[in-house]
Write a protein that binds this DNA or RNA. Structure first.
Lengths: 253, 253
DNA sequence: CAGTGGTCTAGACCACAAC
DNA sequence: TTGTGGTCTAGACCACTGA
């Protein structure tokens, strides 16, 4: 019935934040102050703050103290039902994004994450081609997305798919030129907590999940040719889809 | 340069899990064993385990000890670009889902979450109609989704929109009968960590984010008539969209 | 009912970031 | 330089849950 002290204190602070007692950017009491005020050990006060931090509600800094997180304005990725292509490549988002690759792609061979391996019909631990890119605001050197492509080894070994430069149409043009087209795509949106390596690469604060778009490229016979795994901070991105009413307004079949 | 002890221990355990030394469902060493093995205090060992727990990698139970989390098979919600309707109501997912409302909807008046209020053009703190439902597996009494509709007070006060029973076509038929149709929808997918109340209602373990679909209902003149906020555990759900190649394969305009 | 994690303390010292 | 959080300990006791 009774929740522990640190949790009750976290609740009180959470409610105060939601009530607006501590608006965005405002400083919460110092950990030592909380400890003194409630007559508890510093560790216990710290546990309360850690709980709010894990919820993504506050930000803690060494000299700064604890502040209510300022929620960034979300960038909306407008996903289209149709892929477009121009002389510079393919676009899955009809809205042009103002950021680009921060570094040249990293090309390695290694095992894919388990769920990606399943999509590729690769054995667990089997080596595949991994093309890893980090996208972001080039001017501000701010990373925003990790985009990794996985391709079957048998398909890509010794081909230009494993080169750093794949030309303007990228791997999709190459795949079509290799006779695997016309390509079809499908995408899945999910979320999970970042691994520490991902959190570091993206500069992710605690308590922020990753939004994940897994895009699968298929040949007409249904073979999966590529899986693209894009991860981005869920506090700065959201993905928009439009919906229309079916003419008959009746479930098919 | 040097990371703290608890973090190094967490890294070692994380790598062991990824290597398969501890497969899914396997028990990790007990906290007291870790403490003894590394010659550290129990608290420090516990901090290492807490880190893995916050990543959603392990599950901790009182008598059970620490086990590697078994990742459930994800249920795929296949989102359509078109809404369907039959005699039982509207369908945004053409795949019939095997679960339903666990309880009758809760109808209250209160302020909407900040981002929803913005969509509704409601002032912060302004009361709106809140229709809250919890969906899940009725037989197993297992909650799976929290679905909340928000409607402007001026639109819904005193109408059947604020009644528990809205009839077979639900609020969308009502809105169209009130002269606001034909309706159009748009949806946004995002993610965030759950508030404690949400975690409890959904039975969410630590380290699992919420996947969130915010669906906006608009009248032809662009007025937002309703905002539906659906939250579900990101470890059991993913949302699928299909993509086709644009006939001209060229960016429009 | 016993074994496991969960909470809490008092005090010490470390490490970073802002001034 | 120094104020803030960050880590760590040794020990105590609590509270759940599974056998």
């Amino acid at each position: 019935m009774n929740s522990p002290a640190y949790r009750q204190i976290a609740s009180e602070l959470r409610e105060a934040i939601e009530r607006g007692t501590y608006p965005e950017g405002a400083a919460l009491p110092k950990i030592t102050e909380i400890a003194e005020q409630y007559g508890i050990a510093k560790q216990t006060a710290r546990a309360a703050i850690a709980e709010l931090e894990a919820e993504g509600l506050v930000e803690v800094g060494r000299r700064r103290g604890t502040t209510v997180r300022v929620r960034p304005v979300k960038q909306r990725l407008t996903r289209s039902r149709q892929v477009f292509r121009d002389e510079r490549g393919y676009y899955f988002d009809p809205t042009a994004q103002p950021w680009n690759a921060l570094e040249p792609p990293t090309i390695t061979w290694g095992p894919a994450p388990r769920d990606v391996a399943v999509l590729l019909s690769a054995a667990p631990g089997e080596d595949v081609l991994i093309r890893d890119r980090i996208m972001g605001d080039v001017a501000a050197r701010k990373p925003m997305q990790l985009a990794t492509s996985f391709l079957p080894a048998t398909l890509s070994r010794g081909t230009q798919l494993a080169e750093r430069d794949t030309g303007p149409g990228g791997i999709y043009d190459l795949l079509e030129n290799m006779g695997h087209g016309p390509l079809a795509w499908e995408e899945t949106v999910g979320a999970r907590m970042p691994a520490p390596a991902e959190a570091e690469r993206l500069g992710l604060p605690k308590g922020i999940p990753l939004l994940r778009i897994v895009r699968t490229t298929k040949s007409p016979d249904g073979t999966v040719l590529e899986v693209n795994d894009t991860r981005m901070p869920a506090d700065t991105f959201e993905i928009g889809y439009s919906i229309t009413r079916h003419p008959s307004a009746v479930l098919p079949n």
